[in-house]
C-alpha cells in the first residue's frame, strides 16, 4: 500500500493516494537522484503524477498495468521532447 522506501528507491505498490503526494515530493527533494519502482503500482493520484513530471526521477520499472504504464511513459516522453 503506497510508498515503501528501500535506500535510494521508492517502491510504489497498489494505489498511491493523494495524501502521499507531499511526502513523495519531500522525499524526492531530499533524494534528487532517487529512483522509483512502479511495477506493483496500480494507480497513482494525479497529484503524484505531477510531482513525478516536475521532478523527473528515474523510473526503474514501469507499472505492470499497461494502461497506466502507457500514460506514464507518455508523460515522461512529452517532457523529453519539451526539453529537447
Amino acid at each position: 500500500m503506497g510508498m515503501d522506501i528501500h535506500g535510494n528507491t521508492v517502491v510504489i505498490s497498489d494505489i498511491l493516494g493523494v495524501e502521499e503526494a507531499e511526502p513523495l515530493l519531500e522525499w524526492l527533494l531530499e533524494h534528487r537522484d532517487g529512483q522509483l519502482d512502479l511495477s506493483a503500482c496500480h494507480h497513482l493520484h494525479a497529484a503524484n503524477l505531477q510531482v513525478l513530471m516536475a521532478l523527473r526521477p528515474t523510473i526503474t520499472s514501469w507499472p505492470d498495468d499497461p494502461a497506466l504504464a502507457d500514460w506514464l511513459k507518455t508523460a515522461f516522453d512529452e517532457m523529453e521532447s519539451n526539453h529537447a
Binding site: V18, L29, V51, A54
Partner: peptide, 15 residues
C-alpha cells in the same frame, strides 16, 4: 512550465 521543485505545490493541478 513546472515551477522549481522547491516551490512546487503538489496540490495545485497544472496538468
Amino acid at each position: 512550465p513546472w515551477p522549481d521543485p522547491e516551490t512546487l505545490d503538489a496540490y495545485r493541478c497544472l496538468l
